[in-house]
Amino acid sequence: MKITITLTITLLVSCLAAQVSSAPNQDAANIIQELGLREASKPLSRQPGWAPSKILVSAPPFLTSITPGYLQQLRGAAGTAELVIDDSGAFVPDPALLQGVDAVIGLCDPATMTAGADLIWVHNYFVGMDRCASLTPEQVSGRTFTNGKRLSGPAIAEHSIAMMLSLARGLPAYYRAQMDSKWDNNLRQQVRFGELKDKTLLVVGLGGIGTEVAWRAHGLGMKVTAIRNSSRSGPDYVSYVGLSDELMALAADADVVVNALPLTSKTAGLFNEKFFAKVKKGSLFISVGRGKSTDTDALIAALESGRVYGAGLDVTDPEPLPADSPLWLMDNVIITPHSSTAGSDSIRRGAIIAVENLRRYVAGEPMLSVVNMDAGY
């Protein structure tokens, strides 16, 4: 009798899911195709405990103001499941809101795990999973984690290219002179990097961000090489894809190195004194991955010695960067406060894919952008 009842409930939930299931809307379909979002190999309906009932969504005012209709789209995707909207502005919700929920859309954080045993899906709006790095195997087991991987790739790639172009043309020094109302034609003597065409750019981390950087650099006439941990496969505009143990060799031949790595135990402190000793003399270093992957003291030493021509840093270690850091005063350094994703396009894409993953969750379909929690991305 118990088996029959359980089977009946499962079939009933599946039928309800089928009633609200539909294909992705055109905006979601375009993003999936253009950015190469990947879906899981199995439908979520096969996951033990799947029974969409109560879903909590963090929807801070800035997000809903940029994406009109977001709440209505969420309600449409939720079907018959109860949708709890947290518009407090806090990505980590009050524990009282988490009680009894089986899914959370917001920010992956240890506090989210207080939702209890019913929780089987957590969607992180952003790509970084750093906050969930401390989860225990018990907290991860039996749950699906998804994130915003690849969605901010275009914005971060444009930011990276902007910093590279600015450093190559010596614009930071010109800007400082402009702030002093000084027409200093002698600054042209400091522009020694040369033109970007035919120079080599190394992307360290050929994921969503790295791929977008590579495509843009190739369009500028640069030769693009890359490092990735998983395989040697890559798009045709990347001339060579090496594995992680080839970093030093490829860096020695690169005029520009772009750090687009996630933060893991293997990438922490990767760009250290040893790395900067091997990097090609007079190269540019652009960091848009995670600050803790770079040894700040080693980078400063490389800049002061001239080993590194210039650096564009959207991420630093620590963050915020202390006011007394020498990096602030260097003419060959550009610093932005972890803001390379700024702009409504990334937020709009994030909202569209959150809705699409909610639709898939309720329908029991394969989820998009599932995170390997062991690897951290």
Rank of each mutant, 00 (worst) to 15 (best):
I5M: 14
V13M: 15
L16H: 06
A17L: 05
N25G: 13
I31M: 04
E34I: 07
L37E: 09
A40E: 14
A40V: 03
P48M: 10
G49L: 07
W50D: 05
S53T: 08
S58I: 02
P60F: 07
S65P: 01
I66W: 06
P68M: 06
Y70Q: 02
Q73T: 05
R75I: 03
G76D: 05
A78H: 04
G79I: 00
A81F: 11
V92W: 02
V92R: 01
P93E: 11
A96F: 06
V101G: 01
V104D: 07
I105E: 08
L107E: 09
C108D: 13
A111N: 13
T112M: 15
M113E: 08
A115V: 11
G116M: 14
W121T: 02
N124V: 04
M129S: 05
D130N: 14
R131P: 03
A133Q: 15
L135T: 08
T136K: 03
P137F: 14
E138K: 15
V140E: 08
S141W: 08
R143W: 14
K149Y: 13
A155H: 12
Y175C: 01
D180R: 13
N185W: 01
R188Q: 00
R188L: 00
Q190H: 02
V191Q: 08
R192Q: 04
R192I: 01
F193S: 00
K197A: 14
K199R: 15
G205Y: 07
I209W: 05
G210F: 02
T211P: 03
R216M: 11
A217Y: 02
A217H: 02
K223D: 10
T225H: 11
T225M: 13
T225K: 14
T225F: 04
A226W: 09
R232T: 15
D236Q: 04
Y237D: 12
G242L: 12
D245P: 11
L247R: 12
L247V: 07
A251K: 01
A251D: 07
A252D: 13
D255V: 00
N259T: 08
K266Y: 14
G269I: 11
N272M: 13
A277W: 07
G282H: 05
S287P: 07
R290M: 10
R290K: 15
G291T: 13
S293I: 09
S293K: 01
T294W: 08
D295Q: 11
A298M: 09
I300H: 05
I300G: 06
E304W: 03
E304D: 15
R307F: 00
G310F: 00
A311Q: 00
V315I: 03
A323L: 15
S325V: 02
N332C: 00
I334M: 01
I335C: 02
H338F: 01
A342C: 08
A342G: 06
S344Y: 12
R348C: 12
A351P: 04
I352R: 02
V362L: 08
A363R: 01
G364A: 12
P366D: 09
P366H: 08
M367K: 12
L368H: 10
M373A: 10
A375G: 07
